[in-house]
């Protein structure tokens, strides 16, 4: 009596399955989130209601619990969820479904034989949400909202490997805002910061979905361009240079004229590692800065 009430009052899903994986018990939490009442589901095969669970991993874990009496853990990280429920208590969640952490374990008869298994379902949407935000924050540059240097370097490393493996083109553009220290000195850091934000947004709007823009340093930016060869990267770089020169940048009612120096490099199979590609683009940028408002390609 008390235990039945506890099972129905606790804020987590609780269900019990028999050896044929028919539902033996279905608590109120499960009923509320699934819109399936205990009367409807008890005595029936779980897979009639949740056919997606009928897959090798879930079945193996059921067999394991019945055979060994051990526990099985379905982490949110790997599985996201077992039961496709709507997120209940989280508004503005990026998830379409409630994120769940589930545990499966044995229920024994008086002679210690595993007769049933239980499955507990915890709603971890909020935690997953928070984690996702933290991960995102860790990747982004706080000022401009584009990616930061650390994430850029990890991505460069991965994309470099991928381009080698699949023999696909990969280019890198390094950008430096010319004489930017003057903007800060003349108009103050707030104007400077606004200019960096506006510039990042303008460049970002000219890139494809698959390109990656990051703030590399103070006024230095990097664009990683998968499946883009040298000439195409050069065209894009030239376009960015012209756009920057021709735009009337208005930040906090101050009108600025900006130019950029750009270094471009294309990944080659003979480059031993991503560091070489980075070095080449950086060398090209260094050469471009000798004259300012220029694009130099490494070849």
């Amino acid at each position: 009596m008390i235990f039945k009430q506890i099972a129905d009052m606790i804020s987590m899903g609780l269900l019990v399955l028999d050896e044929d994986l028919n539902v033996h018990f279905w608590n109120r939490w499960m009923a509320l989130h699934s819109n399936i009442t205990a009367d409807e589901i008890v005595g029936k095969p779980l897979f009639d209601f949740f056919p997606d669970l009928n897959e090798p991993n879930f079945l193996r874990n059921c067999r394991s619990v019945f055979t060994f009496g051990n526990f099985a853990f379905f982490s949110q990280k790997l599985h996201r969820y077992l039961f496709p429920f709507r997120p209940a208590y989280s508004d503005r969640t990026p998830f379409d479904f409630m994120q769940q952490s589930c545990t499966m374990g044995p229920i024994r008869s008086s002679d210690n034989r595993v007769q049933y298994l239980f499955l507990s379902v915890s709603d971890v949407t909020e935690v997953a949400n928070y984690e996702e935000q933290l991960v995102e924050m860790n990747r982004k540059d706080a000022l401009t909202g584009i990616y930061n240097r650390r994430f850029f370097e990890t991505s460069l490393q991965q994309e470099f490997k991928r381009s080698l493996r699949h023999g696909r083109a990969l280019s890198l553009i390094m950008i430096d805002l010319d004489y930017f220290k003057r903007v800060n000195d003349l108009h103050g850091h707030q104007v400077g910061d606004d200019a960096l934000r506006a510039f990042a947004a303008a460049v970002h709007s000219r890139l494809r979905e698959s390109d990656l823009l990051a703030r590399y340093g103070g006024e230095e930016f990097a664009c990683l361009l998968p499946e883009t060869n040298g000439p195409a990267a050069r065209t894009l770089a030239e376009e960015l240079r012209r756009m920057t020169e021709e735009t009337r940048w208005v930040c906090r009612e101050v009108e600025l004229r900006l130019t950029i120096s750009v270094g471009v490099a294309e990944s080659r199979p003979e480059m031993g590692g991503f560091e070489i590609l980075l070095k080449k683009a950086d060398d090209a940028l260094y050469a471009a800065k000798a004259g300012r408002n220029r694009v130099i390609c490494y070849n």
């Binding site: 394991s64 051990n70 099985a72 210690n112």
Partner: peptide
């Protein structure tokens, strides 16, 4: 981790079953 969970569960489970004990497991 999955392989670990099953292998450990199998070995600990069988030993304790033979000797009449039932154990709980932490997540691996």
């Amino acid at each position: 981790i999955e392989v670990g969970n099953i292998l450990i569960g199998a070995c600990v489970g069988k030993i304790t079953e033979l000797l009449n004990d039932v154990v709980l497991y932490s997540p691996p």
